[in-house]
Design a binder for these strands. Sequence first.
DNA 1: AAGAGGATGGCCT
DNA 2: GGCCATCCTCTTC
Length: 221
Amino acid sequence: MTRASTGARPGLPLPAGFYDRPVLDVARDLLGCVIDHDGVQVRLTEVEAYDGANDPASHAYRGETARNAVMFGPPGHAYVYFTYGMHFCVNLVCGPPGVASAALLRAGEVVAGFDRAASRRGSSTARDLARGPARLCQALDIDRRLDGADVARRGSPLRVLAGSRVPEALVRRGPRVGISKAAEWPWRFWIDGDRTVSAYRPHLARRKNQPGARIEVGEDA
DNA sequence: AAGAGGATGGCCT
DNA sequence: GGCCATCCTCTTC
């Protein structure tokens, strides 16, 4: 279902209806699609699903606040948040209004605007330009000005274009990264073998000398 | 290759 | 006041 699942031919913007589906389906189908902003395009290789009020790891779990309000709105809008005092991350809202599900764009490959992306990122290898959610935002110059942007609207500064569908055999899923709650849920999707997929890092306890907690290697893309 | 620690600010209890 | 959906550098193996 090449056309049906992505909702558009490669290179054309994904319609709003693409996002108005269960977040797990949207997250998986975003693999291979291209996010475009201000002269840089990134082909997505890693996406995570967050399921609104049902998901203890979601920013929406404790209800609507000023910060997460966009998540409670219509699908196809960007939820951009600031974290760790210095980083931005971008999600795409999924499902109907009020559900507050979203897909976190975790990593990708820069396919256009390489020089611009490299300049924004400082000295960085091609592989690392958008390898990780905050790096991806930095390469694309995404910040809070874009919180709420409608990526399906014609003329929007931030857009998402359909790619050719990634074959099922190349889609892998596993635990999400960097969260302490519901981390075991296998709601992270990535393209098998792609070197721009971020390294798997389990949530690190803040305390010093925390023994045990060995994690098996998920993948080395 | 892998782990530790710092940077740094807003959000929520 | 604590906790982050992180990244970078440095250290050690």
